[in-house]
Amino acid sequence: MTNAQFKEELIAYSKTIGIDKIGFTSADPFLSLKERLLTQKKLGYESGFEEPDIEKRTDPTLTLSSARSIISIAVAYPAKMKNPPKSKKGERRGVFCRASWGMDYHQVLRDRLSKLEEFIKKQIPHAEMVSMVDTGALSDRAVALRAGIGWSAKNCAIITPEFGSYVYLGNLITSVPIEPDTPLTEQCGSCTKCIDACPTGALVQGGQLNAQKCISFLTQTKGLIEDQYRKKIGNRLYGCDTCQQVCPKNKGIDIHHHQELEPDPEIAKPLLIPLLKISNREFKEKFGHISGSWRGKKPIQRNAILALAHFKEEAALDDLKSLMESDPRPVIRGSAAWAIGKIGREDTKEWLMDALKKEQEEEVLGEIKKGLDLLSKISH
C-alpha cells in the first residue's frame, strides 16, 4: 500500500468511529509556538495547568523519539441544550460550560484515538504511537492549526469551517510518515467581538490570553476568588463560553453527532442550593462522569455560593449560615460569609457578628468583614 492510499484509508476509517475531522502534519518542532510560550511565561499569563517543560510542549520527538507525523482529530459537541430548565427565584441554577456537557471528552477522544492506533497497528505492525487529549505535552491547538483542522482565532480557540470552535481536539504522534495537510488561513479578519466581550479582559489582544484572568481558569482554582472577579463569574460553575457565543463563525452552529456528548439538563444546569450540602459520594455519582468535575467538589461549591450571591437568593441564607459556621474548609466558610453580606438581608448582620467572634482563620475573618461592609452599605 502506498503512503497516499494508507492516508485515504485512515481518513475513511476515522469517519466510521465518530471522528468529525482529521488532519495530518509533520513531527517537526513548533518553533513559533515556542517563542509565544516563552513570552506567556515571562508575562505570567500561564494557567499553571500546562506541561511546565516548554521543550516538551514544542518538540514531538521528546514524547516519541521515532516521531515522523502527528494526526490531529476533532470531535464536534453541541452548542444548544434541548429543553433547558429555567432558573427562577427560590430555584436558582448554575451552569457548566458546553465543553463539560455530556461524558468527559477525555474519555470520548481517548476511545477514538485508541481505535485509530489499533487500525494503524493492523496495517503497519511496527508503527510506534503515542496519543494524547488535552493533558499531553503538546499543544492540541498548535497541532490542529498545522494539520489544517482549523485556524487559530483571536479568542485562542481553533475554529473549523464546518463546526465553528465547538470541537474537542486530540493528537496521535506516530513513527509512520504521512503526507501533511495544508494549514488554513486565518479568517477572523477585523472582527474583535470576542476581545470586546471577554468579561474580565483576559483576551489581552487577538490570540493572546492572560489565563490568570480567564473565567474558565478562575472557576477551576481552589482558593478564594479575588473580589474583582466575583460578580463577573455570575452563575458559572465551571468554564466560560462568552468568547465562543459572540463569535460570528459560531452563528447557527449546533452539532448533535454524538449521543455521549448530549447534556443532561439537570447536570449541565443544576440547582444551586442542593450543591451546598452535596456529599463527596453524591457529587461523584452525579457529576463524576463530566470533565467539569476534575478538580473535585470544592471549586464547584465555592462557585455555587458566588452564584447564589449574584442572584441575591434569600432562600439560600440558612444553608450559607450553616456553611459559614461549621464547614471545615476556610474557602467555603469565607465565601459563604461574603455571600451572606452580598445577599443583604438586614437580620443576617447578627450571624456575621457572631461568626466574627468565633472564627480563627485570618482569611475567613477578612471575608466576614467584607460581608459586614456590604450589609452596612445596603442599610445606608
Rank of each mutant, 00 (worst) to 15 (best):
E285C: 13
I305D: 13
A202V: 02
N250A: 15
L218P: 11
N210I: 05
L308E: 02
A202G: 03
P274W: 03
R281W: 10
S293Q: 01
Q245I: 13
A304F: 06
D227R: 08
L275K: 06
S279R: 05
Q220Y: 02
G206L: 06
K231F: 15
V246E: 08
K232L: 13
L275M: 11
I255T: 13
L261I: 12
Y238Q: 09
K232A: 09
L224H: 08
K231C: 05
E266T: 08
R281I: 14
Q208E: 14
F311V: 10
A309M: 03
K222V: 05
S293N: 09
V204G: 07
G288H: 01
E266D: 15
C198A: 04
K213R: 11
H257S: 09
R302F: 06
D264H: 12
L276F: 07
G223D: 00
G223Q: 04
I290E: 14
I290R: 02
L308G: 03
H289W: 12
H258G: 10
H289V: 12
D196C: 13
R302L: 03
A304D: 11
C198I: 06
Q205C: 08
Q228I: 08
N280P: 14
I233L: 00
Q301K: 13
I305H: 02
I273S: 02
L209Q: 01
S291C: 13
L224T: 09
N250W: 00
G201V: 03
G201S: 09
L306H: 14
K297T: 05
L224C: 04
E260A: 04
I278S: 04
L306I: 13
G239T: 02
